[in-house]
Nucleic acid binder design. Structure first.
Lengths: 148, 148
DNA sequence: TCTACAAGCTCTAGCAACTACAGCTTCAAG
DNA sequence: CTTGAAGCTGTAGTTGCTAGAGCTTGTAGA
């Protein structure tokens, strides 16, 4: 046998996938992972299928897909007939979101840099340009929305 | 009088600053805004000082500062003696965070684009490359961390 | 002055996506 | 057989708001 036993407890699954134990239980709770078999003593026992599904989930989460989107993608991958178009739509929408976020963050980067260098932290000769800049939106070079 | 009365209720403050009424009450609750005077009937009455402080908070939030950081900045701006260095440190750290986030998002953008175009949503000739790509991290061109 | 009704109040619960306990049970190695 | 790590359930906390219920206050028109 190459890499893993046929069946494993939650800790081993966590280790193999890089997803925390609590998070695995959370995914089960919200319906992303199916309920696994249990040992006689009521402990979860996972197999290859669970590991693969969890890897899918983790990868998608790392890419910033919401749990809702992942639910949709998993539904698609379960009945893959007309999955392609729908999956493409989900991925494209998400790509759009990511690009928006990048654009907004770059505006923030510019303004933060301007603010931070205006008060370069020398001796306290300045009245703190940072605090002034934050107090006075009029100094701003653009409107900015939320981009956390 | 140019623009505003001396004293105003919460709705007017909300309108002038672009911060929602509930959010203003929330900021008071978490100690970002001081408790204002009240009318005889227990309604909040705000003045210029409050409006300025709230504008500061909003601007900083728009720039992605956490409430915790804003609390620190406000503390500094209240006693501005040695504020400059500390404010500079906060702003620089935040700038670093923003740049990290941008870098990670750009990696994601690349991978998402690769995934989305690999299954360009034509007729369903494909087995859905998107779902395969998500299932198999081995196809990935890099490690990626969380960047939501 | 009375009457509507908008705007205000407090308190509580909800969102996403986990994380962290408390207090218990089970598993596995020695 | 013992011991301690790992597992279990359930609840509450995190961040930064947002939304509602159910009440009170302010104010403009008649």
């Amino acid at each position: 046998m190459p890499v893993a036993e046929r069946v494993m407890p939650i800790g081993a699954l966590a280790e193999q996938t890089g997803v925390k134990v609590e998070t695995i239980r959370y995914y089960e709770q919200v319906g992303l992972l199916p309920e696994p078999e249990r040992s006689e003593g009521n402990q979860r026992r996972y197999g290859r299928r669970h590991r693969e599904r969890l890897a899918f989930i983790k990868h998608a989460r790392d890419l910033g897909f919401t749990v809702e989107s992942i639910r949709a993608l998993l539904r698609l991958s379960d009945k893959p007939d007309m999955a392609c178009d729908d999956a493409h739509a989900i991925a494209s929408a998400h790509l759009g979101d990511v690009r928006d976020k990048i654009a907004r963050l770059r505006l923030l980067e510019g303004e933060l840099q301007r603010i931070a260098t205006s008060c370069a932290g020398g001796v306290s000769a300045c009245d703190c340009a940072i605090i002034e800049a934050l107090a006075d939106h009029g100094q701003c070079h653009h409107e900015h929305g939320r981009a956390g």
